[in-house]
Amino acid sequence: MNAAILANQVPDPLQKEFILTVERLTVSFDGFKAVNDLSLYVDEHEIRVIIGPNGAGKTTVLDLICGRTKATEGTIKFRDKELTTMREHEIVHAGVGRKFQNPSIYEELTVFENLELSFPRGRSVFGALAFRRDAEVRDKIEEIASLVFLKDSLQTEAAILSHGQKQWLEIGMLLIQSPELLMLDEPVAGMSVAERLKTAELLNNIIHNQSVIVIEHDMKFVEDIAHRVTVMHQGKILSEGSMDHVKHDPKVVEVYLGH
């Protein structure tokens, strides 16, 4: 179904502009290739899920895209910008947001302050000194807070949120920046079933505005959200396509089930 929508939007697949084009990406740590000659194409408004066994290099791929790790070889193009040569904050300014595996929020600050620091204004030293909490900021923070189910906890210190709420807060901190590409590393880890459903609903809601790359182990959740699934194994792509397709791919079954 999703593939059909995408096909309608872009008539000629050969002319198609990808939002993210990763080609021949390799990174080696002292000879060990954590990501090996990997190519990945993400469409506009696509939810792409990357799955794979531990150590497959999933998180490293996200690290490479957002500039946390420098690639040994290969290119990462975000629209027409080459990300491999840009610094982390420049990549964020270009419109790429990233959530970490463990909820990474400022525990000593309130939910409001967490979101405020992520508000994309006053990012320079003097900008931060001159920053004022005006109506625009307040409105945006309230809007995002209700989107991530934290409207009633704005003045709560982030440290005392539940694990699931912390995950939402971090997603909210990304959403307030309106990134065009959102990368989420295990967004539902540690969430209850109810929270997982709400998160899936949240991701499906925001998709009209952005593309999303998700790393996830929870197959039920993957089925709920994924437009396409990429399976990684030992730094390479093992299989790619719809959930149905990869589920029945013998190579994937082999990696997950047997040796």
Binding site: E88, H89, V92, I105, S118, M173, Q177
Partner: peptide, 11 residues
């Protein structure tokens, strides 16, 4: 507290 989070929030 979380230097990386700040960096990946565009600072």
């Amino acid at each position: 507290d979380k230097e990386d989070r700040v960096r990946f929030s565009g600072y």
